[in-house]
Design a binder for these strands. Sequence first.
DNA 1: ACGCTGACTATTA
DNA 2: CTAATAGCCAGCG
Length: 133
Amino acid sequence: MTPRKKNSKPAAREKLASVNPSGKKDDSFFQLVFEVARQIPKGRVTSYGAIAACLGAKSSARMVGWAMNLAGSVKPKVPAHRVVNRNGMLSGKHHFSPPSKMEEMLKKEGVKVKKDTVVDFKTLFWDPATELL
DNA sequence: ACGCTGACTATTA
DNA sequence: CTAATAGCCAGCG
């Protein structure tokens, strides 16, 4: 297994629920992902697995990517460009309107991108289970 | 209603 | 080192 930082409890999911004031709980896994993605600070990036793990579904990193697919369909818009794969590579760049838009936005936010890969990804990595805590 | 696909990740060969 | 495979879960045809 990958020696993660420390114990990442799925309890983070409750924190997201806290973001939901009206008592209307969104069971939709995607909705949770959207909220987390929205909390990503500018100039920072995260991975699908990190978000999934934060929600307690680290095995379902794919679903996170799927959620990003709806990111442009939900409101407010979700900064899917800040979400990359575990290698820091802009795997989802092909899903943007212009594929290059993703790295352009990242560069605009101060993230260096080289060959579709985030430079110093580990340094810019934003772990919701730790930072959002 | 059933089956395929898919913006991932970890493991095995 | 790189390549291929399996596991995951939900939207869409």
